[in-house]
Design a protein around this nucleic acid. Structure first.
Lengths: 218, 218
DNA sequence: TGCCCGATGTATCATTCCGATACATCGGAT
DNA sequence: ATCCGATGTATCGGAATGATACATCGGGCA
């Protein structure tokens, strides 16, 4: 199926879990959900949506808007609202429950993480751990290959390498913090509304006192 | 031609500038040069190499290795060493001198930066500035879109957003530092071998929004 | 001595994916 | 009144990937 398409499928399923949407908005949401990464194009989204309808994960729905009576207007190209079917919910649950490399993959980890609120604690932990280990591994072989060829690099190339390394290191640290937070919350939670936030670092950047945190709503 | 292919072309040209190589090693070097990003596959590399040979940027060369005499062995699939032609050097210089979005693009910035040592100071500065502004812009619209929909996000999604934001902010800071370093070295250097390293973490932050080409991504 | 195996090496191809574009409607600014 | 940018659905040529095939080589080891 292709890793990327799989990530897209999960993202669509997850977003439609909250509310029905049409393609245009879906695309914006998916791409802002993953923010940083490469954006999905319509050439990927629409075929994917069709396939998902075909498999009965989604249902199309053309809402009768204000202009109620729309008779046999053939060439009419109306808005199409997609919503989740029960099969779609099931599919989402299946995909979320996966803990193999297909979950901590570069392409797919972000989507999985975004919907962690709908996964169980054990799954979360396995994915976090898997992701962390993969990055750590990559870090190690990168470092060793660097030390083998360091002498012949000019200053800019070297700086690029250093910066890349630092980024991945930071990523690992982020994951470590998240893992700690998860572990802490396992101890304190059994059948009770959890209030612990996954945020465990002492950051200040946004300077923006928000109270959000409904934990996972719906 | 495709952004990605262009990045690959520049990387190949730049690497062969130092020493001839064959495809296998070329691929390893290119991919470790960019480290973090997506790796190029052979299905991309070999066709690209052929095209570059066709355009006369590269010359193939089957070196007579230690086992000197290799007679009319027909089906022999030998190693192919690629080396830069004068046209190739020219092409490299042309690509490096570009300062449009095609230089500070997500795909291409890294390669350009890696070979900054062979670009002049003015080009370096323009690319750095362009890249910085592009990221800053992306940051702004991301922040505003976040504040518009913040209330309905669950904790994990929010954390993902926050982390993405932080990464880009850090990237901008990195660029700011590099820009400061470049500016400092402009003052002290005219027609002299520069020994200053690009790394100098005493940034004079943004200060001045110079001209920018905006070009939008998603 | 022979054999196996992982690294090196070149090459291709079906499938997947992107980027550009076409087409259409709508609300708001001038 | 009309222009224009945002919203919206859809497709297609071509670019890129991931998998695979094929081949050589050096070294470990029974």
């Amino acid at each position: 199926m292709g890793r990327r398409a799989e990530a897209l499928e999960l993202a669509v399923l997850g977003l439609l879990h909250d509310a029905p949407m049409h393609g245009y908005e879906l695309r914006k949401r998916v791409n802002s959900l993953l923010g940083w990464g490469r954006a999905f194009s319509y050439g990927t989204l629409y075929p994917a949506l069709k396939e998902m309808v075909r498999r009965n994960y989604l249902a199309e729905d053309a809402p009768a808007d204000a202009t109620a009576t729309q008779p046999a207007r053939s060439g009419r190209r109306g808005k199409i609202v997609y919503k989740l079917t029960p099969e779609g919910k099931e599919r989402f649950a299946d995909l979320m429950a996966q803990t193999g490399p297909s979950a901590w993959d570069d392409e797919r980890f972000g989507v999985h993480f975004a919907f962690f609120g709908r996964a169980d604690a054990e799954t979360r932990m396995r994915i976090l751990l898997g992701r962390r280990n993969r990055l750590q591994e990559r870090l190690d072989q990168f470092r060793s290959s660097l030390s083998r060829t360091r002498e012949r690099l000019d200053a800019y190339t070297l700086e690029l390498q250093r910066h890349g390394l630092e980024s991945v290191e930071r990523e690992v640290k982020w994951l470590d913090d998240l893992i700690s937070a998860e572990q802490a919350s396992i101890g304190t939670t059994t059948a009770q509304a959890r209030a612990t936030k996954p945020r465990a670092t002492a950051g200040e950047p946004p300077a923006d006192p928000t109270e959000n945190e409904g934990e996972n709503g719906r």
